[in-house]
């Protein structure tokens, strides 16, 4: 566990150092380049903000009305069979479909059970290790006007299932 923490801690500073060092060696105006990128970041957040407001509100009503508790109760026996935490199920279902909704659902889980709790960490690892599969497939196939995607969806969903299963398993160690 200590090695895991060390690797996790050093990864970020190290990559920042390498990249900035690289920029200096190549005589890039690193700060100007940094500013251009940071401005783009502002736009990214601004673009997802309205979606997040809408979805947080909808998910908030689902939870406060008690529907999510009800659904969790119904599915718990089935999920217990495969040793899967039922609290994570809503995230696993929405993750391949919508990026901003899954951010909202994951944040909701982290808020409710605690960001450093086991469930909170599982939700974060799932978010970090998987991608909005359906959206990605749509973007790349539509860019070239292809309708027949053969087995791509199946293969991508297999990857998602494995990613989610491993996320749950590794957080249990």
């Amino acid at each position: 566990m200590q090695i895991i923490n060390f690797l996790s801690n050093i990864a970020m500073p190290l990559i920042v150092l390498i990249i900035i060092g690289y920029g200096i060696i190549e005589k890039n105006k690193v700060f100007d380049t940094f500013l251009d990128g940071a401005k783009e970041g502002l736009i990214i957040v601004l673009n997802i903000f309205p979606t997040l407001i809408g979805l947080f509100m909808a998910i908030g009503t689902l939870r406060s009305s008690g529907i999510i508790d009800l659904l969790t109760k119904i599915f718990t026996p089935i999920l217990n069979l495969i040793n899967f935490p039922s609290e994570i199920m809503p995230l696993a279902l929405i993750r391949p479909i919508s990026g901003s909704s899954s951010i909202a659902v994951a944040t909701d889980i982290m808020n409710k059970y605690g960001v450093d709790s086991n469930l909170g960490i599982i939700a974060a690892v799932i978010m970090g290790s998987t991608e909005t599969t359906l959206y990605t497939i749509a973007i790349y196939t539509e860019a070239v006007g292809i309708k027949n995607t053969r087995f791509v969806l199946a293969a991508a969903l297999i990857a998602d299932v494995v990613g989610i299963a491993v996320s749950v398993a590794i957080c249990r160690i």
Partner: peptide, 19 residues
């Protein structure tokens, strides 16, 4: 906050290998 980095690597590489 960065404690998840290593677990994410393991999960994402497993997912990629499966895919």
């Amino acid at each position: 906050p960065t404690a998840i980095v290593f677990p994410v690597w393991v999960a994402t590489v497993s997912a990629a290998i499966a895919g």
